[in-house]
Simulated scan of single mutants.
Amino acid sequence: MVTEDMLLFSSTTDLFSRSQMPDLNYKHVSNLTDHTGIIQHAVFAMPNRKEGYCIDDNARALLWAVWACKNNKKDQIASHLLPVYLGFIHYMQTEDGYFKNFLSYTRSSSEKRGSEDSFGRTVMALGYLINEGPSHLLIKTGREIFAKAFPHVNVLTSLRGMANSIIGICQFIKSHYPDDWKRNAVIQLSDKMVRMYKDNRNAEWHWFEPVLTYDNAMLPLALLNAYEVTEDEQYLAIALESMHFLESKVFYDNILRPIGNAGWYKRGGPMAQFDQQGIDVMAMVLLYQQAYRITQEQPYLTRMYKSYQWFLGDNDLGLSLYDFSTGGCADGLHSKGINLNQGAESTLAYWISHEVVVSTL
Rank of each mutant, 00 (worst) to 15 (best):
V66C: 08
L301K: 15
K148Y: 03
G142E: 03
Y197M: 04
T33G: 10
E144I: 12
R195S: 12
L137G: 00
S115R: 11
T347M: 10
P83W: 09
M218D: 06
Y53M: 08
N72S: 12
A78H: 01
L333A: 10
S118C: 09
N164A: 14
I338W: 00
A222F: 06
T122E: 03
Q277R: 14
F172S: 04
I187R: 03
S307W: 02
I294H: 05
M92W: 01
A226C: 02
F119I: 08
V66S: 13
F44K: 15
T33L: 13
F251D: 10
S359V: 04
S242C: 01
K174F: 10
D96P: 05
L129F: 04
Y26T: 07
R160M: 06
A262Y: 10
L340D: 03
S104F: 07
F324Q: 06
S320W: 02
T230S: 07
L219A: 13
R121Y: 11
I39E: 01
V66D: 10
D199F: 09
N315R: 01
H41E: 10
N154A: 07
Y197D: 04
E144A: 08
S108Y: 13
R293M: 08
S118I: 10
A203C: 05
G327A: 04
L32P: 00
W351S: 09
V358W: 00
E228R: 06
G161F: 04
A222H: 04
V250E: 14
L317F: 03
Q290M: 11
L82Y: 03
